[in-house]
Amino acid sequence: MDSEPQRPKPILIAEAVAAGYGGAPVITDVSLQVAAGEVVSVVGPNGSGKSTLLKSLVGVIRVLSGRVALGDRDITNWATEDVARAGVGYVPQVDDVFGPLTVRENLEMGGYLLAPREVAGRVERVVSVFPALGRLLGRRAEKLSGGERKMVAMGRVLMLQPQLFVLDEPTANLAPAIAHTLLHDQIARLASTGAGVLLVEQRARSALEISSWTYVMGGGQCRTHGRSADLSGRADFVESFLGGAPAHA
């Protein structure tokens, strides 16, 4: 990308990150930025390294080379709990809830860092964002439907009101209508309150619609990136990812 278009001042910066699982690096030389109030999406085929990228950013796996910064702080290879304490709410692709605990307990665990008296109020706020959770508070998370479960997972990170959300396929296994609501209402709303959102999404078309910037992963590298609106007009991209003619050429 020779002519970098103007972007807002980033809160998350990754520079030339390489990471993997002990063997050869799975992702190499990935750079990205997320600004406050912005939804940034990462798309790419299965196994292209999207989850690996997010895991390396939030300290689940080691960054082998490159740099990750949050605001002015270098958080490269910080422990996951310290990244969380610095204001990053990470929802993993799998194992995203405390299965044997109730929904209320899941939310309370999300608010572990809060002062005890603040917790109840925050739970109410989360329920106001996801009203469906209200009547599920006493249910065990492992007994919920896929969609309900994702709401719990999102609710857990909302408890701390992080400055950056890192969401790995929040709409996986969701019915199209529910996925649409989650992306277009809730996630879009998170950004409108001033938080940054880094979103991995299989539904590339929806991802482009709600994000301002999109990175395309392939074979462990960032193949291309650009303004989402521009990408959805690019024939090569549309052909590979959206499977059809450009949406608005």
């Binding site: 299965n46 074979g219 991209f237 590979s240």
Partner: peptide, 15 residues
């Protein structure tokens, strides 16, 4: 299982 072996190289051609 994933059936994605060749897909992974797809976007590279797109560049």
């Amino acid at each position: 299982v994933s059936g994605a072996a060749e897909l992974a190289t797809g976007p590279a051609r797109g560049q």
